[in-house]
């Protein structure tokens, strides 16, 4: 097994990897995308009747916005994959909890 040959080179408290600038192009692209989706949300609210399909579209747009905020603004796309996974995987369980409790909530309303 290889080990770090020069102890003292790695100081876990003060270690800060060098971050290079990726330029501002991706950031502005993300900005226009978020703005565009928000305007689209606004238009769809008035154009479409309030149906389940409209709610699905709104939730889908919300997830797209979340993807771009976390990926580009919070830089998670450019981090190591194992860091991204320990952050993203636990949040998947929230979706299951939401589904379950919406179902139960609906059942409660029928008994009220």
């Amino acid at each position: 097994m290889e080990f770090y040959t020069k102890p003292g080179d790695y100081d876990p408290i003060n270690y800060v990897p060098h971050q290079a600038s990726h330029g501002t192009k991706e950031l502005w692209k993300t900005f226009w995308l978020l703005l565009g989706i928000t305007i689209l949300d606004f238009i769809i609210y008035f154009v479409m009747p309030a149906t389940g399909l409209r709610n699905v579209i709104f939730i889908f747009f919300g997830l797209v916005k979340a993807y771009y905020i976390v990926g580009a603004f919070m830089h998670l796309k450019h981090e190591k994959i194992n860091l991204a996974l320990i952050i993203l995987v636990p949040t998947v369980f929230i979706i299951g909890l939401v589904m379950g409790l919406l179902y139960e909530g609906n059942a409660i309303s029928l008994m009220k």
């Binding site: 770090y4 408290i13 990897p17 981090e79 190591k80 860091l83």
Partner: peptide
């Protein structure tokens, strides 16, 4: 050990 597995600061 001896390196940051996620290559980020503490």
């Amino acid at each position: 050990g001896g390196r940051s597995p996620f290559n980020v600061s503490y």
